[in-house]
Design a protein around this nucleic acid. Sequence first.
DNA 1: ATGCCTATTGTGAATAGA
Length: 254
Amino acid sequence: MKIATWNVNSIKVRLPIVVEWLQTHAPDVLMLQEIKTTDFPTLEFQQLGYRCEFVGQKSYNGVATLTRQAGADSVRMLAGDTADEHARFLAVTVDGVRVINIYLPNGNPIGTEKFAYKLAWMQRLKSEVQSMLEAEIPFVIGGDFNVIPDDIDCSDPKIWRNDALAQPETRALWRSMLHLGTVDAFRALDPRPGQYTFWDYQAGAWRRNIGIRIDHFLTSPQITDRIEACEIDKAPRALEKASDHTPVVLTLRG
DNA sequence: ATGCCTATTGTGAATAGA
């Protein structure tokens, strides 16, 4: 089973690139973030053999999960705050795996309500993880976590010292989810520093490989045992009209 | 360097991203 995640930074602009990538790589599941619309191009993906579920929002955020097989038991919002209207969460069960697509809040600037919202959102996600582990539900959480887990996940820690993505509180909440028993699938297999999933559009960041690793897969124990590979596909970042993020692909045995 | 680039809204220039 092949599961991919990709923050596309507008599905409207990125549609041709995403279609081409899907045809080439044919994952069983593709999780998209920052679709930035309520008008998802479902027909185009159906023609490629994918079913679409999405939670849209005008201008901002929005997540979509494309699956070859039919999904079940969709949940479209993260528990813990019924007043939260951001389109950042979509859970669906595919072939016995609870596939959770997230676009975790950026949280900048620190010291504002935006940062408080990020931390509260992470606490809610942690509660979700706890519940699923207690129920022994096999799950994968994939998406744009907006978390730089460690200094080896960015080109220069000094740049990110005052940024929400690398704050001690942010990293502590990330680690607390690992301590519960989940695994950062990419890092479990690849110890190398300098492996990124995002490069800013500005200042020639891509050309100079100044990036950060913020798009992740967290796996539950049953899924961790099935990990065959987890790789960052850098190729789409080099294309014309690229997203500033590139896909990450998780391959499970069976 | 409160910049640099891209996308959305909407047709200006502000907001957000990370």
